[in-house]
Design a protein around this nucleic acid. Sequence first.
DNA 1: GTCTATAATGCGATAGAC
DNA 2: GTCTATCGCATTATAGAC
Lengths: 214, 214
Amino acid sequence: MSAARTSHPRTRIQAKRRGRILEAALDVFSTHGFRGATIDQIAEAADMSKPNLLYYFRSKEAIHHELIQRLLDDWLQPLRDLDPAGDPMSELRAYIRRKIEMSRDFPREGRLFTNEILQGAPHTLGMLRDVLKPLVDEKVKVIEGWMKAGHIVRTDPYHLIFSLWATTQHYADFDVQVRAVLGPERDGEGRFEDAARFLEQLYLDGLAPRQGGK
Amino acid sequence: MSAARTSHPRTRIQAKRRGRILEAALDVFSTHGFRGATIDQIAEAADMSKPNLLYYFRSKEAIHHELIQRLLDDWLQPLRDLDPAGDPMSELRAYIRRKIEMSRDFPREGRLFTNEILQGAPHTLGMLRDVLKPLVDEKVKVIEGWMKAGHIVRTDPYHLIFSLWATTQHYADFDVQVRAVLGPERDGEGRFEDAARFLEQLYLDGLAPRQGGK
DNA sequence: GTCTATAATGCGATAGAC
DNA sequence: GTCTATCGCATTATAGAC
């Protein structure tokens, strides 16, 4: 069969090999960026020859494109899960927990996106407008609802979301720096738990309605 | 004279040309990363030929190295300026303001560092340990002093600093995303002022000592 | 489907004239 | 100091045998 290069492989064996390539590509793209990554590196990581890899994907760009598309949905799931009917403080706490867990368990995915955005989102700008912005706009309305109901203090909901993204994503993107600063004496997975606790305190205290109520 | 390649050019004309190269290189490295940048691009941006550029710098890596070294000091200045004798809330507010202004006025410098850290700090790891960590350790002690004196709530000072870095740096690194989400209707330099106000509110309210005491 | 070989281009760096 | 020309290697992608 000669349909290996389509996005929808017909056979199980093709799906499996494409999956192995994507897994290897995630490794390489996330640490070297798109241009810094080479097909050779990806092929070696996927344990196959370069021409063989290019039998499954038309080009380096095609691999990157499919990777971005597949991962964006997962990446936004915590924000999608923000429940308008839930208790605001519990929802925020759950969101922070989920995002910190993702930085701990899937740092490569985060770095892939950061690399992409940092370089001006050349392959992703359309998705930012068509997928990301509508979702954020929707959740901003949820947050504004909580503010009007007096459950959390009034503030700029867009910048609140940016701030949540930035603080949680930091532990994936700047992992090297975080570990260098914490030093060997505090090295270990505990930093993620410490981060979650700190961020819960910061956001939950910072957003709790004031007693005096303005 | 044949000393153009040393780090300390003797003549004014050499310093000027090297400066023009570094300015162009900042542009290119900050948007494409080290490996994504080409000497051709830098040379064109500096309006000189590639061999001419390589007369002033031994190699692509030498340009990058000097850029990182020159900028790190500026980059850490706001943290250095954190005054143990100052009012904690005013010091934090000033720090946030300074960092947001830097993201607005010097976004390329921020992206240069983020690119570098994201890729595992291959050229910078030593500086993180020798320069960054000692400075952070020193300022952590300052913050701990404020906590013990009851001026701000007790929390993890390392993660507080990470959080401040992440939230302020976000507006340089993720500028494309921020603008895509805010949309054309909120596009304009106002986003930096909005960000500063939001962050002041978050941190100052979140860190203010509770009325009931601990 | 997978391989070896190689085409085609991009890129860092140098040679050598002026 | 600056240029044109070019070397040498890396890298993307393809050709064609098996």
